[in-house]
Design a protein around this nucleic acid. Sequence first.
DNA 1: ATTTAAGCTACAATCGATTGTAAAAACAAA
DNA 2: TTTGTTTTTACAATCGATTGTAGCTTAAAT
Lengths: 342, 342
Amino acid sequence: MKKNKPTIHEIARLLNIDSSTVSRALNNSNLVTQKTKDKVLKKAKEIGYQRNLLASNLRKSKSNTIGVIVPRISRHFFSSTIAGIEEASYAQGYNVIICQSMEKLEREIKIVNNLISNRVDGILVSVSMETTEDTHLKQFDLSNIPLVFFDRALSEMPNSKVLIDSIKASYDVTQHLIDQGCRKIVHIGGPATLDIYKDRFKGYKQALQENNLPFEENRVYTSALNEQEGRKIIKTLIDLGIEFDGIFSANDLAAIGAIKYLKSVGIKVPQDVAVAGFSNEPISEAIEPSLTTVDQSGYEIGRIACNLLLDRISRTDNESAIAKSVTLSPTLIIRESSKRKK
Amino acid sequence: MKKNKPTIHEIARLLNIDSSTVSRALNNSNLVTQKTKDKVLKKAKEIGYQRNLLASNLRKSKSNTIGVIVPRISRHFFSSTIAGIEEASYAQGYNVIICQSMEKLEREIKIVNNLISNRVDGILVSVSMETTEDTHLKQFDLSNIPLVFFDRALSEMPNSKVLIDSIKASYDVTQHLIDQGCRKIVHIGGPATLDIYKDRFKGYKQALQENNLPFEENRVYTSALNEQEGRKIIKTLIDLGIEFDGIFSANDLAAIGAIKYLKSVGIKVPQDVAVAGFSNEPISEAIEPSLTTVDQSGYEIGRIACNLLLDRISRTDNESAIAKSVTLSPTLIIRESSKRKK
DNA sequence: ATTTAAGCTACAATCGATTGTAAAAACAAA
DNA sequence: TTTGTTTTTACAATCGATTGTAGCTTAAAT
């Protein structure tokens, strides 16, 4: 019934040669005559041989696979980075295992153990919102598995990272809102456990200060940055009677929630309140008014991070073992939600 | 330098017992005393042992992994199915390898070979738009690897599939447009090589016929169903002077392209032309006017398909070997882009 | 023809875990 | 104490491919 898959031994037996020769032939070793190689290749094709990577990897103690951990693939930014990662790894013959933490630390820990058990050769991580501890990620170091962070990194870990300049981006966004006449700008931030959100806050604050605008504690809120939270925060602000004429949200979803709520209560965007988000999700262009935001070029981030990792995996000299930090500068995309002047 | 990871032999050596006992202890076999198990578990934790799944899987000739091939994960529908798949496989301790064909047959073929080499225990596929041949997918059968299709299936293959009732859904959408007063409805379809697009067309045609509306060839177009194509098709129609008062697109992106173009030339949606899409991408709710569409409950499809597959993998009786087709009924979501009546 | 070198191939160990079975240990019964 | 039974552990083969090395072939050089 269950026909066993052919092995190199099967080929060797049929050809009356040794399996080691078959192995070398299939790997195009120069220890084997072209004639033998041809014979082996022909027979292999004939009986439908397909290399068992489990065995091969075990022997070589190398899986030719890298693991990727992202919060969730449904976010456009992350699926872009994954596209970039796949492109880079594909080019060098590496496989990619994609895992979603769903923003849960517990899940992230399970994924880590699993990837180590699967003996991945390297790992790319963008941590979950719940991740404050690094004990689980340190396991990769202990197992000698190179790790590169992208976008969401843990600052206390010395690994290579590929980030965007969140401070500058936020500064630019905030400055833009100020240029449009905003004086009382609300900031919807993410959990301060993550550097990117701390930085977005920093850039915001910095822009206010440099423009001699007062910084008010009650205009800053942190949340899980989904649409619902965005709505809720703005509703609360209004209910409390806190005045504001601009909103800078640390991501697009929360910004969209905010816009929808503002529209629902008759507040005009951008005339009464100008709004800007972060990440340039496709939806940001579609909503009405279209959302001013920051493009993070996820594809590039993924590509660069992956190449950094692959370089680290393949080279063993000290040079490549040094952690590198790459910072990309994001671009401000100005759309209707913040355009007040002609 | 490179410390080798501890193995069961290491544990065995330290405890002065045999590695087979260690293995059984770690697998909680009842051939080992509780006392020994405790000893082993303690030592394993102490030296940071982590099972080498490559070795384990090789010996068991079972990878505990299922492969998933989707066109692209950035489509919301597919990332939803993946979420469903992960949920189901997670519950049964299976790993998931996610692969994107990027709608390319060539890429799909490479992925197939790779997954077989990695000895996945089963496979879930939604084929690319270019996939008309089934030779590469037949390899799974030859290798005795169960395969279940979801959403986009190849009708000539007898495998289990989980689909939505595209005909009925399209019929409902078209009927809805007719109810709103449309008489000349354009259909933007996908490649007829895929059943789902053929079915969407069938449902459309059927609704026209049952309402005694003429079917006009020049109101039907097939395309790659992206935003740009949607734009282009509608532009062409208008330039050619072909009249229409409704559009039923086989996916949301093309519908959105159509709406954007219509708006740009001053044609009012839904007053002049009512528009409906398919898939319920998040963006369909955000655009203005919001898009009438069909929800495919991707999460459910993924969950069901995965359970079907896992059932097929674990059970070996004839019963489970029978191909099952599950058809879900999708729900019509009526939004602004088609609402003409109060 | 003989030596020497170079080119190929075969042998055997190895990667780390699993598993059927033989052997040993523990315990109970006679 | 001896025999019989049941638990528990050790031995050894196995999964499929890779790789260092010994040995055999072949061809070139003397």
